[in-house]
Amino acid sequence: MDEYTPKERLARALRGEKVDRMPAISVTQTGTVEQMEACGSFWPEANEDANKMATLAEAGHTVIGFEAVRVPFDITAEAEFFGCDIKEGTKQQQPSVVGHVVKSIEDIDKLKGYDLSKGRIGVVCDAIKILADKYGNDLPIMGSMIGPFSLAQHLNGDDWFMAIMTDEDFGFALMELTTEFNIDYAKKMVENGADTMVIIDPTASAMLIGDEFYQKFVVPSHKKIVDAMRDMNVATVLHICGDTTPSLTLMESSGVDSISIDQSVDVTNALSKADHAVLIGNLDPVSVLWKMDPDGVKEASKKVLDDGIRIIAPGCGIVSNTPNANLQAMVEMAKDHKY
């Protein structure tokens, strides 16, 4: 018999505490077409409606076997909340941010005093409530949100990359807004029943902006979010794309409990760099989870497990056309793994 409930197991594993075996989860988005067909809840509607969102999230557990439920499936609700134009998604594809609303400090001021019950932010919180009522005693309820640096980029557009260099006051002011929003939003997800918080901050890659800007703009902001979550006894996961190996020390300096690494990271190397953060990853969502067969997935999983990954998971968002059987193979490998 299992020693822990999935909820206890993940809570312990993310904090680096001893567990009976590996939890089977995905910290990145879980929605796929085969799951949509199995549960009858499809993108794009499942991004907009709390019941449909909860139903598709639930399929991750009931159809695939993930030992957690997780919402939402995209990272655009936050920018949409602040008024950015969104290109609507399809059954196969997530929505994208196409318009930006912040050009100046005055624009930032206009965005203050928001109401978190509005828009898809409210929908995500409602979906969390539905899932927590149904599964909250047993399963981890994972809330996910875009991180503050990437949200700033969504709000400001690609000029953001230059602004952090040429206009520090503006850069800090926008980070202050997004960080406060992230904290408020994360707290609300927790109040609705989330017990694990995933911060997806792809644009904040030190590969893109370098350690100096990462230290200046990203670390203090992540630290505030992580501290707020720790006060509520919620474990945090940070996902950043790309080969983050050289920046792991900097990334974990925010105090984040665990870091999700992408498929371009060498696990052995990464383990030698990360001091306290639990490393999660890093099966290639394209060439392994989407394109291989279950045996191939198992073989690729074995390699990552042998390298010593603490929790096996996709290295980035699961591709919507990924077959159930491949995700199930990964789940099986995780469940069979003892430390």
Binding site: D158, F161, M162, I164, M165, M207, I209, G210, F213, P246
Partner: peptide, 14 residues
Amino acid sequence: KKQAFIPHLLLASN
């Protein structure tokens, strides 16, 4: 060589 990053490249490009 990781001596310059996207902010520097974008400014250079402009």
